[in-house]
Write a protein that binds this DNA or RNA. Structure first.
Lengths: 223, 223
DNA sequence: GTAATAATATGAGATATCTCATATTTTTGA
DNA sequence: TCAAAAATATGAGATATCTCATATTATTAC
């Protein structure tokens, strides 16, 4: 992890203003941090001292269960908060946050700004919207995971992540995300190929039949 | 549904103040509504015109999937909001909300108060906390549903809902809530009885072995 | 009070998904 | 550059969960 200093910090802040997020100045104690791919931004179970706002990059929220299974709960993208749960709630079990690409974020020291943040309607309004969307996405994922087999959820995931007709996500990551075993994921992928929906080419899959995949994904009703 | 008028309204408002939720007066256009058990407070897919705040009672959030399955996403209890998603987001698929007991709530007409509410730090702060807890609970339920079989989730549910050692929830409701088939729920309940964790007595179940149920529930790690 | 509806109950067979074992290939770190 | 670690790959058997069929018992509505 690198903390931007001096000129580098100054330049970055000029090019990426976050003045629209707060109605008071935060420049004085704010930090700009750059995390490398796979670096942990927050360790599971360790309360962070900062509220983060992601400017660039992508991160993953993980939780480890007592049976050893690991769930990738969700992704965090640019223009989203990290650590807001800890800002708001005194007791909260902190999830692990890992950068999945190079990630640059603003970091506000909570002890310095907590009081002001919780009085700031501008900040709270945006955070409230963000949280409402988050809650709503989690609810959708939850109910879908119970109501539909992997076949449907995977079709949806493939269509969302494929780039120019090519699907090439890492199987292990997808298992954590969709909450199924590696074995079963491969099984369903093989089925998709047998049915002619996709064609395997080395490590990547080419989509051959969008219509069928869409038919599977659409029943999830992700509006 | 009954809307309190005149003296009844006046009395209720004197006894149940919600002044602490807002920093501006809301008395003028607020309604007090009482819903009977099983009545729909919001119809699925129909945008509500009100923001509700539950004072008394308990309601359920439902979503119907395209394959006909119904998920009971969560419960709403006293001192919680209904309709906040619609207040915050212009596009949102409205879930169905059904009273599961007699439910009394305040109803604020959105068109009248939206602007003020979104500027009110006091209101937004409480709503933000509420939403952060909601998002966090959904995330926990989601990851648990993927990581653990019914056995564990049911043990947790039984311990949470049993009253003086007696479990007597309706099977059909539990199926929707835990997202499993009726058949499978009964199967696992029967197993619990065979293993001596519970004893069936007519329509209710008596808990006989708390330790074993706790052991099953604890691995979920609900902190 | 009775017919309709909802909830409970149980069996049998199908399918979705998991666990474990083992081998090969790719990536990573010293 | 080489050994260790991670990711991919596949088989076989076990288990969790679902679907459908069918009966019986409560609850609700008229």
């Amino acid at each position: 992890m690198e903390i931007y200093k001096g000129k580098k910090k100054h330049n970055f802040m000029e090019q990426h203003s976050i003045a629209h997020l707060f109605s008071f100045p935060v420049e004085e104690f704010i930090e700009i941090r750059e995390y490398k791919r796979d670096e942990w931004i927050i360790q599971e179970g360790m309360r962070p001292d900062f509220l983060f706002y992601v400017m660039e990059g992508k991160a993953k929220i993980y939780i480890t269960h007592q049976n050893g299974k690991v769930s990738l709960i969700n992704f965090i993208n640019a223009n989203e908060y990290i650590g807001e749960m800890e800002l708001l709630n005194d007791v909260y079990y902190t999830k692990g946050i890992q950068a999945s690409t190079k990630t640059i974020c603003f970091a506000l020291p909570i002890h310095r700004y907590r009081g002001q943040l919780l009085e700031d309607a501008k900040f709270l309004r945006e955070l409230t919207k963000f949280l409402s969307v988050k809650a709503s996405i989690m609810a959708a994922k939850y109910s879908q995971s119970l109501a539909f087999p992997l076949e449907n959820r995977l079709a949806d995931f493939i269509l969302q992540t494929a780039d120019e007709g090519v699907y090439k996500e890492k199987h292990v990551a997808v298992c954590d995300y969709l909450g199924v075993s590696y074995r079963h994921l491969l099984h369903v992928l093989t089925q998709f190929c047998e049915k002619g929906y996709m064609q395997k080419d080395g490590r990547v899959y080419h989509i051959k039949d969008y219509a069928s995949l869409h038919a599977l994904a659409d029943v999830l009703g992700n509006r």
